[in-house]
Structure formats: C-alpha cells, structure tokens
Design a protein around this nucleic acid. Sequence first.
DNA 1: CAGATAGGGCAGTAATGTTGACATATTCTC
DNA 2: GAGAATATGTCAACATTACTGCCCTATCTG
Lengths: 165, 165
Amino acid sequence: MADARTAVNPLFLREEDLRQAIELLFFAYRDFTGEADQLLVEFGFGRAHHRVIYFVGRQPGMTVSELLGILKITKQSLSRVLGTLVTEGFVTQRRGERDRRQRLLHLTAKGADLERRLTERQRQLIAAAYRAAGAEAVDGFRKVLLGIVNPADRATLLDQRRGRP
Amino acid sequence: MADARTAVNPLFLREEDLRQAIELLFFAYRDFTGEADQLLVEFGFGRAHHRVIYFVGRQPGMTVSELLGILKITKQSLSRVLGTLVTEGFVTQRRGERDRRQRLLHLTAKGADLERRLTERQRQLIAAAYRAAGAEAVDGFRKVLLGIVNPADRATLLDQRRGRP
DNA sequence: CAGATAGGGCAGTAATGTTGACATATTCTC
DNA sequence: GAGAATATGTCAACATTACTGCCCTATCTG
C-alpha cells in the first residue's frame, strides 16, 4: 500500500493523522512526567513543586510574577507550593535591589541538587528518543511543538535559543 | 556563529537542547489542553472527563479495564468520572455478550457531539502546526514522541496506523 | 465447585487548583 | 509629597482529581 499522504501532499491531513497526534501528545506527556513523579513522592512533593524547581533553576533570580505567568496558575496555588519549598530549604527568596517589592527566587544547593536529580531522568528519556530518531526528526519535533505553543511563549523559547536569557 | 550541532554531529546533545525539549513539551501540552478546557467548564467537566470521552469515542465498545490501562489511574478515580458521564447521558454501558461481566462503553449521540466539539479545537491547533511545519517535520515530530512513549503503548500506537483498531 | 476476573462501592485522605477579599510594602506619577 | 499602581502575601471556602485499602457481586474458567 503506497503512502501517498506524506509523499505527495503534505497538507492532506486525515482525521486519523490528527487523532494520532493527539494521542502521541497524551502518551508522551504522561510517560515523560511519570519519570520524575516517582522521585518526587520520596520528597513528598508533587508535579507543582517540580515545575517551580525547574523554572527557578532555569532562570535564577526570577520573580514570583514571572513564575505565575509561566505556570498560568493563581497566586494562591503557587503560594502554597512555593511556601513549602522555601520552608524546607529548596528555594530562597531575596529582596530585589532595583525593586525591593520583588522576591527574587533562587535554588539553594539542596534545591539545585533535587532539580538535577529530577531533570536527569527526563533528560535521559529525551536524549534516548532524540538519538533514536535522528537529527532531522529532532528539528521536525521542535518545529511542530513550537507551532502548538502560543505565540508569546513561542517567541520566548526562540529567544532563549539565541543565548538571550 | 556556525551551528555545528545539527550540521555535523546529530548526537551531540547539549544540556541546552534537552532543556529546550523539556520546555517545549511543557508549553505545548499546556496550551494544547487549554484549548479544550475552556469548553469543558461550560459542562462542569474537567480534563478527566475529556480523556474518557476521547478514548471511548476512539474505540467504541472499550471495557473499563482497557480504559484504566490507558489512563493509568485507579478504578476509584475513573469510577466517579465515568459515573457522571453515564448519569448525564454522555456515555452508555452495555453488558458484554461474550463476557457478561464486562461493561462495554459507548458514546451516546450527545457524547459524540461533545467529543467532536472538544477535539475539534485541538485538531485545528495540530493541523495548523502541522501545516506550518511541513510534512518532513511532522514525521520527525512523530518519531521523537514515539520514542518518548513507553514501548507497550508505542506498539499500540504503531498498530493503529496500520489500520488495526 | 473453587478460584480468578470484571466491575462497582465506601471511607478517608492528599495535592492541586479555583475565587474573592484584604493587607503591606514599595514604586511610580503627577 | 499625595495618591495611584504594582508586587507580594494571606485568609477563607471550595472543587476536582487523584490516591489507598477494604469489601462486595456477578461471572467466567478450569
């Protein structure tokens, strides 16, 4: 059976193709996050804690507002999670110098360690999938996912690649 | 600045590349599910209801066990969501003929309609991203995501493409 | 018939999320 | 400098989704 779909007309998207994409996203995300979940329970943390640790580690000195914008949750939801992380010594809050209302977020050594351990598994999973798929496939993966992300965050993701933190 | 990464050695994966992948997955999944969430609240449903409606619509006559295996949640968690959907007339349970212990799940017309409306937005988002990225990129997207999915579900996803439901 | 399986139910608990109102400190603007 | 705006934190009340553990019925299979 010849596969005319990809060979001839790349824009002919069957219902089946789109459903497959939906399922791929569901299964891949489920398994991807599952990697870290096992480790998180040992600390009594959930995914919300992971996300905070990840993004603070990614951009040290981040403000609470910036974090809220990324996670797209309410102040209240973040507050509990962040409070726990600060109390248990994974994250520190330092008063901003330029704007003293801000609490700039940083990981402690303990926090950075957990971040590494959590992300390590996910990195390995991605790295294995990247290696198995090859460089061209990786570019395609990036292109499609970027197309799914809303334009504002898409721009941010692209900026980061150009070395601008 | 020459980009030796993809041009020369596809397997040299920098920390930065892997972090970008992690973030792409996070943002893409967040925005992808956000599409349907808006509609779900109008019905008083959450993502869990959507997942059930989606997979039952995908494979009519599915058993409760099969659904549990896909969602990887407990019987109890599914029970509540499924119960609501049955009570409100979105899903029906028919006793299995071969095995009368089974409750085969089907969408009602009402359920199928909601499924279409929910998935429609997500399909459009995927379709737009696919068109913007091009056929080659789509293949790469599939390859990488398949690599992230656990081997068992990966096999299922591949089987479905060959027409075997 | 005995044991395994499919499904359902109950009780209790936890994590994560929501809204809305309000307080404090700080910065910005006129 | 007064007043508006901003960044952050906090309280209360609540919903959804998930979990564990235990128990029950109906049904199938050997």
